[in-house]
Design a binder for these strands. Structure first.
Lengths: 149, 149
DNA sequence: CTTGACTAGTTCTATGTCGTACTAAATAGT
DNA sequence: ACTATTTAGTACGACATAGAACTAGTCAAG
């Protein structure tokens, strides 16, 4: 029991550390993001630009690891701001497809510029080194958790 | 500009990975936690057991990297469930001190046991290896972000 | 075909968290 | 001593997110 508690403590400590880093990085990101746009919304725009749009909401939700409810809500916000359009999927009566608007693309690019400038004062060579050093392990951990949850 | 965008993409990718791991681990934790208790509440109890109680809310909030508001709310929940008591600080008219109750301690220990069992099927030697390998780097990153936000 | 299982998306409700603004107490500067 | 600043905690409102229940469309099995 004592050994298992030690391991449990180790696991908790690790995930706590992860949680705090997530907390801090999200806060920094939010601070450098224009007006009332939320990091998660920015993340969706970013995802659509990088991997291409015309995808169904459920696929985006699974990529972002959020529930469908959340995605419905987030897409509504982005739609209200004119950054995306949502059209019914011609090949699937249930489905919809998400497309970036020109406004959405320019907004994303501007946001990237803003945030990059903000991060420049915080992410130095040491931090980049850490990122590159542990990136592979993080990806493996994520994959494992995703497959065994 | 292209170089900075590359770095920006790298930073975003890293923090996205962190965010997803946090998401997944929190979900797993929540699933193995008794009835309606939230991971953040469990985290507070855990903190009080590990580092000792009798601390002011603001110190707990800073350790958890949440705002005072959030801590007020969380403590109210834990108080309603009888897991902690909150008494005024005799040395500081503004402050309060948070104490664990016997019920809170036993609850935390039981939760630890539950969650440990749940994690046993997910965290294997490989994952433990990753945790130990990158733990130092994570701590350094957290410290840096905390000091330079 | 027709039925049953599955999937995409939405609605409703609850809750955790944050930002802003406020009160009260402590502390520093003069 | 008095004022100004800082700090601890709270109240209120806004919002992102999750869970449960629901509708509608798809698809496979017979």
């Amino acid at each position: 029991m004592s050994e298992e508690n030690t391991i449990a403590a180790e696991v908790f400590g690790f995930f706590t550390e992860i949680g705090i880093i997530n907390q801090l990085s999200t806060a920094i990101l939010a601070k450098h993001l224009p007006d009332g746009i939320h990091p998660s919304h920015f993340s969706i725009l970013n995802h659509l630009v990088r991997l291409g749009d015309g995808k169904p909401p459920v696929r985006i939700a699974s990529a972002m690891q959020v529930t469908k409810n959340t995605m419905t809500h987030s897409l509504k916000v982005l739609q209200d701001r004119g950054y995306i359009t949502v059209a019914p999927d011609p090949d699937d009566g249930r489905g919809k497809l998400v497309y970036l608007t020109a406004s959405g693309r320019t907004f994303r690019n501007q946001a990237i510029a803003n945030v990059s400038e903000g991060f420049e004062h915080i992410i130095g060579p040491d931090q980049l080194g850490i990122m590159r050093r542990i990136g592979g392990d993080l990806k493996e951990m994520r994959k494992h958790l995703d497959e065994n949850r």
